[in-house]
């Protein structure tokens, strides 16, 4: 799906928002087990950044990855089928929410370990550089990853080797429940600047502002200018994980949540489009179809629980001997 026009971008934000709301419903109904990390509120980042990418570009994502995966073009029906653990899912039900991937679209996976995608992105960018391919790789991560050593190692390697990677920090203010204010010494921008990586602060609630910054960073990376770092200030309207719908926590003041909701990226994107009725109806239909597909897709056969454990086809010994 193209993200070239404001209407395209509104449509994608609407899709991600609707998808995440549908996922909340399916978590509540028990159709999605294990819960999800809702992306609601942060859509402008995924859509703004991915609107600057080409189909051959790649990305690494996070535990809160549905927005990135959809914005890079994954089929919402197959993503939802992945969340419901079905054979028709992107990963045949073997990965779930935290590992959703579509390699054919350059989506190298959501990831369950904070910061783990960064060196993988640098490696994919290094490979593109070695092959002389004009591909860019985006590494999404949150403010929690700013304190992972491997992220800083990745900054160093990317800067030393001048690989075409764009680091996108989605600073939503909290690493699970820990405020960035009491976790991050110095600053996010300062971390990148220390490695000689150009660093830009962006309003992560404004799709167009994110897009503009991403276009500049991606173009520069593609033309051999090396890595860049974007800090997108954003906010998740939901809890860290859907379990917070059951366990009420009070680590975020109600006024804070309310004030960020006033900057909802969906409303801001809609304002650029005018009448969104037709798009909204199309997205609603798309999500209806996605739901139908996800719930009709067969559950995997338990006999296939070790399928794909090895790319070579090696089968492990069973856990019990008959």
């Amino acid at each position: 799906m193209s993200l070239r026009t404001p209407a395209d971008r509104y449509r994608m934000i609407r899709l991600i928002r609707g998808f995440e709301e549908l996922a909340l419903e399916l978590v509540a109904s028990g159709d999605i087990v294990g819960g999800t990390h809702p992306y609601i509120g942060q859509e402008a980042v995924a859509v703004g950044v991915c609107s600057a990418l080409r189909p051959e570009d790649r990305l690494t994502s996070t535990h809160r990855g549905h927005g990135h995966v959809l914005a890079k073009g994954a089929d919402p029906a197959r993503l939802l089928a992945e969340l419901t653990g079905r054979e028709g899912g992107l990963n045949r039900g073997r990965g779930g929410s935290m590992h959703a991937a579509d390699l054919s679209l350059g989506i190298l996976g959501a990831n369950g370990i904070v910061g783990a995608g960064a060196p993988i992105a640098v490696g994919a960018a290094w490979a593109a550089q070695l092959a002389g391919e004009p591909r860019v790789v985006v590494s999404f991560f949150g403010d929690g990853a700013l304190n992972q050593g491997v992220l800083l190692e990745s900054f160093n390697l990317a800067a030393m080797w001048q690989v075409p990677v764009v680091f996108v920090c989605e600073n939503n203010g909290y690493a699970t429940t820990l405020p960035a204010a009491v976790a991050v010494a110095g600053s996010a921008l300062g971390r990148a600047e220390a490695f000689g990586i150009p660093a830009v602060a962006v309003d992560g609630m404004d799709t167009e502002a994110v897009r503009e910054a991403a276009l500049a960073a991606v173009d520069r990376a593609r033309s051999g200018g090396g890595p860049e770092f974007l800090e997108c200030s954003t906010y998740r309207f939901e809890g860290h994980h859907t379990m917070e719908r059951r366990i009420k926590l009070d680590y975020r003041p109600a006024e804070e949540i309310a004030s960020w909701r006033e900057r909802d990226p969906l409303a801001r994107a809609a304002a650029l489009v005018g009448d969104t009725t037709a798009i909204d109806a199309e997205v609603a239909e798309q999500l209806y179809q996605a739901r139908e597909f996800a719930l009709a897709s067969p559950a995997p056969d338990p006999a296939g629980a070790c399928d794909h454990l090895y790319a070579s086809g090696l089968r492990p010994r069973a856990g019990a001997v008959a």
């Binding site: 190298l108 060196p119 160093n156």
Partner: peptide, 18 residues
């Protein structure tokens, strides 16, 4: 590589995926 074992091992994983 610099002395960044986690970094360059992750880089190798990314290069392998590519």
């Amino acid at each position: 590589t610099p002395l960044s074992e986690q970094g360059f091992t992750g880089v190798a994983v990314g290069a392998a995926l590519a």
